[in-house]
Simulated assay, not measured.
Amino acid sequence: MRAEDVEALRKDMLAVIAASAFALRDTIGKSAFDERVMTAMGKVPRHEFVPIEFQPYAYANIPLPIGFEKTISQPFVVALMTDLLDIKADDSVLEIGTGLGYQAAILAQLARKVYSVEIIEELGQKAKQRLRQQGCSNVELKIANGYHGWSEHAPFDKVIVTAAPDLIPPPLIHQLKAGGKMVIPAGLPNRQQLMLAEKLANGRMTMKEILIVRFAQLEGTGSGL
Rank of each mutant, 00 (worst) to 15 (best):
A186W: 05
S92T: 13
L194Q: 04
W150M: 07
N202K: 01
R112T: 11
I72L: 14
L225C: 15
K70M: 13
D91G: 13
P189W: 03
R132Y: 12
T71L: 11
P51S: 05
L107S: 07
K208H: 11
T27K: 14
D90T: 10
V44P: 01
A79C: 11
K199L: 01
I72K: 00
I143W: 08
A3S: 11
F33I: 03
L211M: 15
L141W: 03
P189L: 04
L225H: 15
G29R: 03
K128A: 11
K181I: 14
P56H: 04
A58N: 00
E198L: 04
Q125K: 12
P169G: 12
R36C: 03
T98E: 05
A105N: 02
R214K: 15
I106P: 02
A89N: 12
I17R: 06
L200G: 07
K177D: 08
I160D: 03
Q129R: 09
G222P: 00
T206Q: 14
D91L: 10
V183K: 04
P185G: 07
S31V: 03
H47G: 01
L9F: 10
K177M: 09
M182G: 07
D86Q: 15
K43A: 12
E198C: 09
R191P: 03
L194T: 12
Y57G: 00
G101N: 00
L194N: 03
G203F: 09
I160E: 08
S151C: 06
I184M: 04
D26W: 04
P170W: 09
M13R: 00
V16L: 08
M13L: 03
W150N: 02
I52G: 12
D166T: 14
M205T: 11
Q55K: 14
I87D: 11
A32V: 09
K126I: 07
M41T: 10
V139F: 04
M182N: 10
L141F: 09
Y59M: 01
I87E: 08
K126V: 06
A186H: 06
H174Y: 12
L172H: 01
V139Y: 05
S31E: 13
G97I: 03
A18K: 12
D157L: 08
L100E: 04
L107G: 01
K158G: 09
A164N: 01
I66V: 06
A8I: 10
D34E: 13
Y102I: 12
M207Y: 15
S223M: 14
D86W: 14
V37W: 01
N190W: 15
I173M: 15
Q217Y: 01
Q193W: 15
T39Y: 04
G29Y: 00
L167P: 05
A15T: 09
S137D: 14
E53C: 06
V213S: 05
L14R: 03
N190G: 08
Q193S: 14
K70Y: 07
P169V: 12
M1R: 10
A201F: 05
I96V: 15
P170G: 11
R204W: 09
